[in-house]
Design a protein around this nucleic acid. Structure first.
Lengths: 364, 364
DNA sequence: GTTAGCACTCAACCCAAATGAGTGCTAACA
DNA sequence: TGTTAGCACTCATTTGGGTTGAGTGCTAAC
């Protein structure tokens, strides 16, 4: 439906209009300055005079693809204009071999240290795009628990380590007045695994849990706490880690040279929850395509002047993480999409490659 | 020695000069505007005329405690002036009951979730001071390993969970073509614990390790990797987590309204290593006092216009973490020191309190 | 349908004058 | 001798008018 509307929009535009619109957008992306008919005639070899361009621009404005900041200023692309450009005009850009090399070197695909890897990914993406990037930890939709292990710490503390189906590992410190000794912890661990294994959290039978608590009455406090921790882990009530990079990049763009604007944006970046919704809004995990959210299309007032290019990446069979780039509305979409595409491809493949032993994943 | 010099400095200053200097600093902290003799006479009830104040200011300038941005501007405190103020004049400010309440509520002293707690601490400190804050994870100087536990993940992966002396828990994914089954992992875990327990990393006998590898030849690859991971963990080659908050706060101060200046500072804040050295420079872990680094006293060019107020906090018996506040040179030192003091006190006490069971540390 | 020409708009820049907060110096006062 | 009033001077900042230049829309001619 929206595709339909878009086609009818496009159909109103003859080839010449399209080329003019393209010129305006390209130029504005590069310069951040409104652009006028004369300049277009001079810089872009369209074979028509400024006057003609003026006429066409007048039409384009009427159709809502461009707008004028004030009379006697040039035109800038409107949100609708960007949308058309992104959906229909933009040519995908090949990455240069330098860029590909950079990616290869910058991201150490060290799967043993997921955090580090995410950090590196965010950084590399920020450097190649010169915008701000956000990466969230991979997370699977419904996890079941693969393994639980209790580990002694001291007289009144033990750790519960939970391995989830998506291979992420979470720790909890359990504090209780009566902590079983190391051997007992092992035994209780296996009991718990017996109860839990294979089931997803919702399916754990509370009668089983109660049974276990009864069996080890002296540790009932401890065991109860363990289950509490394990379940909250599996339900991912835990914080999702979010990695950002290149926040300062935005300060370089003239649209944010007004400090108060920048301040608002930075506020958003300090709120983890904001970032997560930013990457998740209207989310469709099954869609593997890159999504582009232009200007006010996102619902956050503070980010009205920003666009977001985002994608999901798969990590192993069941986990999905989010990765996105935030820049000014006049960001270089083509470049950004290409880089993001490449990185997502790399992330998608990495687990497979490592397991197949093709990519030095086994460090010797 | 430096205390000596300082005393002789102070001795040159009669009471009236001191009061004038204090007025200048207080005013400048509040307004960020150079302040002149007339204004001082009007705003501060010193009972002397602007002319007299001018004479005294002239002396103060000669002594290096204040300076003039340009002729015909008022005076601003110099680095030396702030130093004198901070060391000798500043009165410690009592926290208001609102502030104390805020701290009580804002920081959830949930020791089970250290990361969350650090995050909260950074945030609370940033809110109360309205500057930028940095907190590093607690870390002990020489750690020994308390416990190692191997956990099955799947056919070619296992997790090595390492509990350090300082109770921090680190995970490593070990990938190998031949992973022992769950029972074997338990057995090998105890063997490793036998070798490791009590020793600090340097003292682990490589002959013991070699022996173990020989004993389980089929898993030699796996076991070797485990040791590698364990040792690197214990040597804290791992990233130290750093939590920052309130970065955007700095944007509000007029001294950073020049975007290019702000950009430099933000760059620093994105470099974790920078932050760590910032909190660690000239570090003396044994010193429990709050340290104040004024303006150019830190060695980072980009932070010439910033001051840092920092402290160490103890976490349990052996771990020390760092916590600091960064603001403009004309920051409100008195307020900042008070808040930081309060927070450090809270952090210092928390472990003890919890272990003694006095503070709801055992969640029911 | 395209283009040249023209009158008009308006943000941005420049420059000169006015403003005002500050200074140092000197001379008079208590 | 220390304090203060007075005065001439400095200089960043503000104000306001004039110019510039990139842009527009409209009209008439090609």
């Amino acid at each position: 439906m929206s595709a339909n509307r878009k086609r009818s929009d496009t159909m109103k535009l003859n080839d010449r209009k399209i080329r003019i619109l393209e010129a305006i957008i390209t130029d504005y992306i590069a310069t951040a300055e409104p652009i006028g008919s004369r300049t277009i005639a001079r810089k872009y070899d369209l074979g028509i005079s400024p006057a003609t361009i003026r006429n066409e621009m007048s039409d384009l404005e009427e159709l809502g693809f461009i707008e004028q900041p004030h009379t006697s200023a040039g035109r800038v692309p409107s949100q609708k204009g960007y949308r058309l450009y992104v959906d229909n005009l933009m040519r995908s850009r090949e990455l240069s071999s330098e860029e590909i090399d950079f990616l290869k070197n910058a991201i150490s695909f060290n799967v043993n240290r997921i955090e580090y890897m995410m950090e590196q990914t965010a950084k590399a993406l920020a450097m190649l795009t010169s915008y701000t990037t956000i990466v969230t930890e991979p997370k699977s939709k419904k996890v079941s628990i693969r393994h639980v292990q209790l580990i002694p710490i001291d007289e009144d503390e033990a750790a519960a380590v939970v391995v989830l189906d998506n291979k992420s590992i979470k720790n909890h410190i359990i504090r209780s007045r009566n902590i079983p000794d190391a051997d007992k912890l092992n035994i209780i661990s296996s009991e718990i695994n017996g109860i839990i294994k294979g089931y997803s959290v919702e399916d754990i039978k509370s009668s089983d849990v109660a049974g276990l608590v009864r069996k080890y009455t002296e540790y009932s406090d401890f065991i109860t706490k363990v289950f509490k921790a394990v379940i909250s882990t599996a339900q991912q009530e835990e914080d999702v880690h979010v990695y950002t990079s290149g926040v300062r990049n935005l300060l370089g763009f003239p649209e944010f040279s007004d400090v108060s604007k920048a301040k608002n944006i930075f506020q958003t970046f300090e709120e983890k929850d904001m970032l997560i919704t930013l990457l998740g809004e209207g989310d469709d995990t099954s869609a593997d395509k890159i999504q582009i959210i232009i200007g006010g299309e996102n619902n956050m007032e503070e980010l009205r002047d920003c666009s977001i290019v985002r994608a999901n990446y798969r990590f192993g069979k069941n986990s999905v993480g989010k990765i996105g780039v935030i820049g000014p509305t006049r960001m270089n979409y083509s470049q950004t999409v290409s880089v993001l595409n490449e990185i997502v491809k790399k992330l998608d493949n990495i687990i497979g490659a490592v397991v197949d032993g093709e990519d030095g994943g086994y460090d010797e």
